[in-house]
Design a binder for these strands. Structure first.
Lengths: 236, 236
DNA sequence: TGCGTAATTCTTGTCGACAAAGAATATGCA
DNA sequence: TGCATATTCTTTGTCGACAAGAATTACGCA
């Protein structure tokens, strides 16, 4: 019978170095899915207890999230989930639109067979989520679809900015779907198919136009959300 | 006579919370100015001794630098200054060119009086550095000049990507100047002036053209560097 | 002497504890 | 009672120490 080593190590059933990534991924998803509301405080000690680890790896995960702008940190003061800025949205829309265009265009130019496989797979997942009316999955797979297109464009600088924008968009869309109860944007599925076709055909001009149109589509959706929300708020 | 409290605190003559920022800024500049060579290892313990602080704040600074891509971290292994990728430069040039164009254009559209002041100030610093043949200052003030233009564009998403690209460019340019001994690009000063004029005049189309031309100018400079370097290396 | 294995060293990841800065609460005085 | 100050409490930043991997060295055997 082997000594189970249970004497000096009570429960740390996780590999060295995995703790940070785990809590980072989890917090990130909770923030993007609005499980953690924007503006809500984050307590290091509480997280440390929740994952039964020390505060050190927690803090490292928080530093990384702060680097991506997902949480805000006041020195010597509380740290909290970054707020969504509803007042200054146009810079966000500008950047999102430009990145849609550029990444789609680059994908049409630089795609390789393996990229197409990945893009098709993501699109299938998105279509399945739409069919299943699973809002959370819809949002996540949509972002993954466009991230896959960006990946095929092979420009890490654009990719990282685009990922950040898609993440931010995930939060807005989550707000949308949770208030309107999972509308099904079949139109997005069709537009995705058109984008794929342009990428397959290496038609960069068409890819650019489709990327732009798709972006404007999304911008309109979000704007509709905001107006709708406001109307509900001030109705007599 | 007040108690000087010198009993329990030997030498920590620095404010709480300032340690991380200090070592972060310092390492960042040392990396961007090539004081720390790309690929050179970074020793946490050594840094801790150098700044006479614990490894904890050092590690936090390193995590932030890793988030910006300035250092690479192998799990459980060494961490080192990120290498410059000379083989895949075209994504970098693509992104840099696009950001030059977009930020200059947005600046022409959204600039305010205070922005123009800041831009003029940076340009004066750059011109002074050129006149003084101070390569390090030239590079840093050039980046600051363009960052100021981007700031006037008021798009934080573009700004953060552009800053990252300008930082990366600082490293390339530093390599250039240190091998060719401080050439003086008076042409850059003139081009900067033209860009300022377009921004002042709110001529977005001209700003876009100038931004593009300026970017291509810089790309050519860097490409010339690379070819020149290679020729020196393989000369018989 | 050459190679595979075991011991050692070195670096990183994690931990528990302490100290400083704010915030919250209590206390004193008008 | 109301306000200013002092005290306690909470949370964050920093520290020193320990442990796990990986690299390096030492060792043993063919």
């Amino acid at each position: 019978m082997k000594a189970t080593k249970a004497k000096a190590m009570p429960a740390p059933e996780r590999k060295r170095g995995s703790g940070v990534k785990f809590v980072y991924d989890l917090l990130r998803n909770e923030i993007l899915d609005l499980v953690l509301a924007p503006g809500s405080p984050i307590d290091e000690v509480q997280l440390a207890e929740r994952f039964s680890m020390s505060r050190t790896p927690i803090r490292e995960a928080l530093v990384r999230l702060a680097g991506e702008g997902l949480i805000d940190t006041l020195p010597n003061r509380s740290t909290m989930v970054a707020n969504l800025d509803f007042l200054n949205m146009s810079p966000f829309f500008d950047a999102l639109t430009l990145m849609y265009r550029v990444t789609t265009q680059l994908a049409a130019q630089n795609r390789r067979p393996a990229d197409l496989e990945a893009i098709h797979a993501r699109q299938a997942e998105f279509a399945a989520a739409v069919k299943a009316q699973d809002a959370l999955a819809m949002i996540a797979t949509n972002a993954a679809f466009h991230a896959a297109i960006a990946e095929a464009g092979r420009n890490p600088y654009f990719n990282s900015l685009f990922s950040r924008l898609l993440d931010e968009g995930r939060r807005f869309l989550r707000l949308y779907y949770q208030s309107y109860d999972d509308r099904l944007p079949q139109q997005f599925v069709d537009e995705h198919e058109a984008m794929i076709a342009a990428i397959v055909a290496r038609d960069t001009a068409l890819a650019d136009r489709l990327g732009k149109a798709h972006a404007e589509q999304i911008v309109q959706q979000i704007q509709k959300l905001m107006i709708g929300e406001e109307r509900l708020d001030i109705a007599l």
